[in-house]
Design a binder for these strands. Sequence first.
DNA 1: GAAGATAGTCAGATAGGCTGACCAACGTCA
DNA 2: TGACGTTGGTCAGCCTATCTGACTATCTTC
Lengths: 143, 143
Amino acid sequence: MADELNTGLLLYIPYRSLESRVFAAVTEAGYEITTAQMKLMQRIGPNGTRLTDLAEQAQVTKQTAGVLVDNLEKGGWIERVDDPTDKRARLVRISAKAQKVIPIAEAAVAEVEAEWEAHLGREQLAQLRRILTRLREVTDPYA
Amino acid sequence: MADELNTGLLLYIPYRSLESRVFAAVTEAGYEITTAQMKLMQRIGPNGTRLTDLAEQAQVTKQTAGVLVDNLEKGGWIERVDDPTDKRARLVRISAKAQKVIPIAEAAVAEVEAEWEAHLGREQLAQLRRILTRLREVTDPYA
DNA sequence: GAAGATAGTCAGATAGGCTGACCAACGTCA
DNA sequence: TGACGTTGGTCAGCCTATCTGACTATCTTC
């Protein structure tokens, strides 16, 4: 269509590429988890996070977050515990199993980033991260 | 989880935010199309594109692209025509209906970009696009 | 205490994504 | 030219991701 891709697509293409690589690494290491699950899991805080907060962060509905959390729980990636501050709420916490997969995912990210850096140069990759981090301030419900 | 989000997520967050805005604008204008369909449609070239090429560009399987193209065809967004160069192949072409929605999507993108620009400054947004465009060279099967 | 808001779950529906398989058509090589 | 390997696109099956609507227990505010 257009020769000039819109910014959304320009953001999506590397994202998708990186995601596939991370997914492949995690799968190869013997773990079964989907990319959507990994994405949500990354938003869980160190002391646990409420489902509704996860939903907001991931910019999806409560129900979607609920299904993702259900499946994460079934896979042993998270546990749900009571929120001591509110009887309605639960906290979603990272499991020990998840702690094991994190370094694998991080190594895969690092490997891809090294390739990107080799292509762009260190300064441009750093600049990219800086700009994206600033962009979070207006695009991330939780920035 | 980590305070420092990985690059994939940093890319995904603004992408998702922009996508939601474009989807809302297109829906509000009375069109029914999903974000995945819009994404694929943007990869269709001016003289039509083969399904397998679309699949590769979108970094999805042939079958997934097939389903997306089926639904785009059902919605009147594309038409399938024979590929004169290869009897096995078809070309997926943009319909007249799709030409009407493009300006709406583009206007929505422009509006969001203006907000991002207001936040980042013109130079940083331009830099972001430049870097992402370069990054396509190693992340886009069709760059 | 009542009313409005919130957290999370249930239900229903559709789309998107993958794997495996298949057949027609193409391209390469002996 | 024919055999073989590859490619384009479709079928089939399955699971996940996503949305909307609805509900009840719990919380907050007045």
